[in-house]
Design a protein around this nucleic acid. Structure first.
Lengths: 161, 161
DNA sequence: CCGATTTGGGTGATGCGTCAACCTATGAGA
DNA sequence: TCTCATAGGTTGACGCATCACCCAAATCGG
């Protein structure tokens, strides 16, 4: 099956390679910079950011998982480590004994408030400011199309040729 | 310093969030699918692909590093693991006693030749085919601009506001 | 009310990439 | 030739994400 695949032509190959390469560079730059000036990983940053945007600073774990699109175990490992660092706490959810609430602690709030400005600045410098507003809209449109595509094809569907 | 950063406006924020989210989804889909139907990680796939494209199937480690944009230690760990799996071998480079040659073994060649068609098919399905040829060129142009930007700003340069 | 399934979450092993440190070979200058 | 800086590569510790399970609470069917 699929003995004679359609290889990528020059245009396709170039788009894919360039995209991949740029994406990796961008990722590693932002990761390194964030780590250096705040000691946070991207994942930790996003957790703290989401908690700090929440009015109460107390969010059920499942909600974090689904809004990040993460696996449960990933969040579990991560929150355990963050708890050990004193950034957050985990406490039982009164409305559902299975669930747990992730709680932003004072140190976590301070950490994210210190880290955010520099991180935004980096995102600006390494991504936003490289494009015009129109191009940003375009990027939004194109990658939103990818998201729709993924939503329609739930991962395992390459059989029915 | 940087007490009052320019936060992202609605358009910028949307572009960044959508891009990030789509990129993560795309990555995790391709990684999972590749792993499932060939047992390879993306990194292993790329190494094998590059070796198999090379006429001799013997490439100096440093060359792999620079064309992938990887750190030396990453390649070292990876090639050790691949060697243990019998995919490649490492042998001394006759022209430079410090360097080593990464050699594609028969098992490695078979593995990549089996894996490549399906992987290309996945890249097509999850990326290429979602866009028009014109859009692919556009993506190539936009992300190439990112690469040029990175090349000009060698990582640590956010001081001079 | 009881049994089966589902849901929310946690655990341990494993593979991967980074960082920092290290070692040897090479090459350039005195 | 000697010295010293640099380049190519390796190693070990560590943090992170995934996978495959596991567990208890909730929910649904009867």
């Amino acid at each position: 099956m699929a003995a004679q695949p359609r290889w990528l032509d020059a245009r396709e190959d170039r788009a894919w390679r360039v995209y991949k390469h740029a994406q990796e560079q961008l990722d590693s730059r932002l990761r390194r910079q964030l780590l250096q000036d705040s000691g946070l990983s991207e994942a930790e940053f996003r957790i703290l950011a989401m908690l700090s945007e929440h009015p109460t600073g107390r969010v059920p774990a499942g909600e974090l998982c689904s809004s990040m699109g993460w696996e449960k175990s990933r969040l579990s490992h991560l929150t355990r480590r963050m708890q050990e660092q004193g950034l957050i706490a985990r406490e039982p959810n009164p409305t559902d004994a299975r669930s747990s609430l992730i709680v932003l602690l004072a140190l976590g709030r301070k950490t994210i408030e210190d880290a955010a400005p520099q991180h935004v600045q980096q995102v600006r410098q390494d991504f936003i400011d490289v494009f015009t507003p129109g191009e940003l809209d375009l990027i939004g449109d194109l990658f939103e199309r990818l998201l729709h595509h993924f939503a329609e094809e739930p991962d395992g569907a390459l059989d029915e040729a």
